[in-house]
Design a protein around this nucleic acid. Structure first.
Lengths: 227, 227
DNA sequence: TTAGTTTAACTGACTGGTTAGTTAGCAATC
DNA sequence: GATTGCTAACTAACCAGTCAGTTAAACTAA
């Protein structure tokens, strides 16, 4: 009953993604992943070096994919605003086609990315740099005001990951409690995020008066750096 | 060498918060928590029912605190815009004074809130309801356009949690890689978030033309619900 | 004042169960 | 007959939770 090696590897990766998303790296057991893929645990160590390498392979895959797709957006002939929208679409498509990624990335961020190696970090940096190129083009053409790319990156990425990853929690809150948490579908959410992003980035927009002095009640700051 | 019971309980809670934040519920070991607090593991079971109850106590505490603080904002005599700013300040203060909470909550969300019991969910719902009251007041007074409270809640909460929880990752990206991830300090981030939130909520703001039709390339949707 | 009693805070050592990773070997295909 | 895909059974370490027992302080009775 031998299969092609690629099939087996793919089955293991798929089962692992599900387990890691549901239980986290520490919570997922290699035995359960193997059972989910329909194999013995030893099969995982036949195809992968370790639990951690299996985990990293899942993360590397998504950043390779996102790096290529956002790279295509950068070099396309859209205007900068449309590129930002395409970037958000790319994020949301990724979250939809790889629903295990939002929970996995949330946990990885929470742990301080301790497991990510240099190769994986470089793939992450590639996606970030593509957004930066879009922002710089927009500023150069005078359609975006200057924006800090790090702030903007997290402003776009975090809502998508959060929205997708918290779907079960929102459902639980809406079902079992007083909260009127009407379910919001993904297209409405994405439209909302695009609108918000362009509102904030566009040159015309000016922040409301009450926030301009950017004052805080606690200790003074070292290096103010507005987006 | 006996201490007051409150001290011991507090030391265990503090050590547990650190461990849960760094390693997650599954990854944290009760032995390590006990060692961190300077006690034997059995001491934890003397003061707490189980590992899970210890964990929930940490989460309940923060939502009790946030419920009271945001409740005070709701009943204060500020205008709705200032209440939104105060709500964001409350979130950020919480994240600063309880730095273990962002990673813990990120993971809990990622896991679908499976560990949260009815009592804890009710405390969470209280904070959400306080934001909803502010939004409704703003809409009633004609200063906010109608906003979906769930979308708004996640639009405010997710950046704060993400920003705080990802500080180590941003530092790693900036230090060891090509990314020009200049560190952004929390006050600049909070000011940016306030500005963005008020821009989006205010009646004057209209979304840019390119997003108005809210079209998507994939399957049609069931229940559009704009914020 | 003190000897005796109770109680709360605390620990070392254990149990039963689980886990990541290994190894020796089987079976199908080329 | 050699290589590839695959497994049963193992090991060594770890982990949540238990328990019998210790210490020191607080209370009580004479």
């Amino acid at each position: 009953m031998k299969r092609a090696a690629g099939d087996t590897r793919g089955a293991i990766l798929a089962a692992a993604a599900t387990e890691f998303a549901a239980r986290g790296f520490a919570g997922a057991s290699v035995d359960d992943i193997a059972a989910g893929a329909g194999f013995n645990k030893a099969m995982i160590y036949y195809h992968f070096e370790s639990k951690k390498e299996l985990y990293l392979e899942i993360i590397r895959d998504v950043f390779r994919f996102m790096g290529a797709r956002t790279g295509g957006i950068v070099t396309s002939d859209r205007n900068p605003g449309a590129k930002i929208e395409a970037f958000i679409d790319a994020l949301d498509d990724m979250a939809e086609s790889r629903p295990y990624i939002p929970p996995i990335m949330m946990r990885e961020m929470a742990e301080g990315a301790i497991r990510l190696d240099a190769e994986t970090l470089k793939l992450m940096a590639g996606v970030f740099n593509n957004l930066r190129l879009i922002l710089e083009e927009g500023a150069r053409k005078g359609v975006f005001r200057p924006a800090n790319p790090v702030l903007t990156y997290f402003t776009l990425v975090s809502p998508v990951i959060f929205f997708r990853a918290t779907a079960p929690v929102r459902a639980a809150l809406g079902k079992s409690h007083v909260v009127d948490a009407r379910l919001i579908d993904a297209p409405a959410f994405v439209a909302n995020l695009k609108s918000a992003a362009l509102t904030i980035l566009s040159v015309g927009a000016s922040p409301p008066a009450s926030t301009r002095p950017a004052r805080r009640r606690s200790r003074p700051t070292r290096s103010g750096d507005h987006a």
